[in-house]
Amino acid sequence: MATYAIGDLQGCLDPLEALLEQIQFDPAADRLWFVGDLVNRGPQSLEALRFVRDLGERAITVLGNHDIHLLGCYFGTRVARGRDTLEPILTAEDGDELIDWLRRRPLLHHDPTLDWTLVHAGIHPAWDLETAQTAARETETAMRTTEPVAFFGEIFGNQSDHPDGNPTPIDRQRFAINVFTRMRYCQADGRLDFAEKRPPADADPALTPWFAMPERAMADQRIVFGHWSSLGPARARANTWDIDQGCLWGHQLTALRLEDEALFAIDCPGAQKPKGAK
């Protein structure tokens, strides 16, 4: 039995099927962990969402920022953007069922037996595991039980960018979503920076990747995440693995076998080009 963490799909199902063939995925014995962003920008958002949903208990997926964006579009609090490929989901006959399934996915998954934690973007450096789990559970419960137009009408925004100064539940929940699905860099005081997406060598030197922050509370615990395709080759960094290698942009889709940290990858044809690319 093996557990494979899979990088951001973003609507690229064909590369996933090729990767599963490469690793000889055995659905009777193996398990898959998806780092989120199952959908958007790629050509098979609907098919990818159905495929992962249909894996049932053989797969665990956490929510990514593109998944949250899809939920906002479905409930009418977000507007699809120019390069989005969400319309097939929004108009599918089983769209309501898929959205209900997606809305019930976690923001964080921890397996104490494997001693690994799965998130989309990261875990705030000030948070230990218990704090992160509490923030995730509160936000997941609100997402599933609050009137959805009210919840998704308030949850987006940059104003919740620091673990302190979130006086209301929705402020805390917005901050949790920003951490788990959007975070890359932190300022010295732990405040999130939402603008910088470049790799550390090119970034503002006043910013630090979340996983490299001094005295990070979970520095001794293993975390696998995605979201940051410009970070560089997949490798262990301070007990963390970033496995988003930009399949959407024509790079690679990766699988990390958690039991021994063996890495597998396939080249992807690329569904879109990053902004500014020729």
Rank of each mutant, 00 (worst) to 15 (best):
M1R: 15
A2N: 02
Y4W: 11
I6D: 09
D8I: 11
L9I: 05
A18Y: 03
E21C: 06
I23T: 07
Q24I: 12
F25P: 04
W33V: 02
W33H: 11
V35I: 15
L38D: 01
N40I: 05
S45Y: 06
A48K: 08
F51M: 02
V52L: 06
L63A: 04
G64F: 04
L70Q: 00
G72F: 02
G82C: 15
R83H: 11
E97T: 12
D100R: 14
W101N: 06
R103F: 13
R104L: 11
P112T: 08
L114Q: 08
D115N: 01
H120Q: 00
H124E: 05
P125K: 02
W127I: 04
D128Q: 12
E130D: 15
Q133T: 05
T134S: 15
T146P: 00
P148M: 12
V149P: 14
V149C: 14
H162D: 07
P163L: 15
G165H: 00
I170N: 08
I170D: 08
R174I: 07
F175T: 08
V179D: 04
R184V: 04
Y185H: 00
D189W: 01
E196T: 06
R198D: 01
A201C: 06
A203W: 10
T208C: 10
T208L: 04
W210D: 10
A212W: 05
M213L: 00
M213K: 10
P214Q: 05
A217R: 11
A217Q: 11
D220F: 14
Q221S: 15
W228I: 01
L231P: 00
G232V: 11
D242T: 01
G246S: 01
C247Y: 10
G250E: 00
L253G: 05
L253M: 11
R257W: 01
R257N: 04
E259G: 07
D267A: 10
